[in-house]
Design a protein around this nucleic acid. Sequence first.
DNA 1: GAGTCATTTCGTTAACAATCGAAATTAAGC
DNA 2: GCTTAATTTCGATTGTTAACGAAATGACTC
Lengths: 119, 119
Amino acid sequence: MTTKNIKTAERVFKALSDSNRLRILKILQVKPMAVCEITSILKLATSTVSNHLALLRDAGFIQDEKDGKWVNYRLTDEYIEKYVSELAPLFREWLEDDPLVKSDMKQAKIVDRFVICKQ
Amino acid sequence: MTTKNIKTAERVFKALSDSNRLRILKILQVKPMAVCEITSILKLATSTVSNHLALLRDAGFIQDEKDGKWVNYRLTDEYIEKYVSELAPLFREWLEDDPLVKSDMKQAKIVDRFVICKQ
DNA sequence: GAGTCATTTCGTTAACAATCGAAATTAAGC
DNA sequence: GCTTAATTTCGATTGTTAACGAAATGACTC
């Protein structure tokens, strides 16, 4: 577990203080996904999504890993950050009834990168 | 418990996403306090502190009550908001080792409104 | 190593948030 | 009800953040 000062706490909560980032966390709860898949569900510019992902990663909520030509993002499994390790299990149970989140998660189940991620 | 949609969650986390508001929560953990006492510890303009307090109150973390010519703020005891009721006990244990928070809480123990809140 | 496509970085714009001082409001005590 | 002092609201300024499109980077495939 890394240090736990007030700046760290601020960064962790800031990561959670945007509804699009909360949507991303709920989507990744369904399964790991590439940026283009997340983008297609959120309907935001890829650069915007990339920025949100970086904030969530820097706070310790998600991690990335290369998979061929894709970069997959997934919820962090081994939490390094104390705050995240306590918040993540809580948040997992939250927002399950939110209409937008439900719709997002439904799409996340069926999204197919080989269909979506072409241009 | 009130509704728990994504906008509510966003507001709750946004309330926690500023270090001065985190300091206020830790200070109020010591004891209920008037605005002028909190201001004297944080060393911010009263209008700034008032704004932070309103955000924390609207998110459900604190409540206010009149006490003569003062308005006392205290941590909410009966949590109406589901998210707050889960976060508040966690947060209570956090930041205890942060130097600034320790200094704040030390001051909070000895602050005396009858000495501080004159002009 | 050239082409292709996913991802990230950059530069810009617009909206939002933190801060302050000053003015307005509220309430207590005489 | 007048005075005094605490608190809140208002207006302006400054800094931060979310968003976009375009350009740059990175990596796989041939």
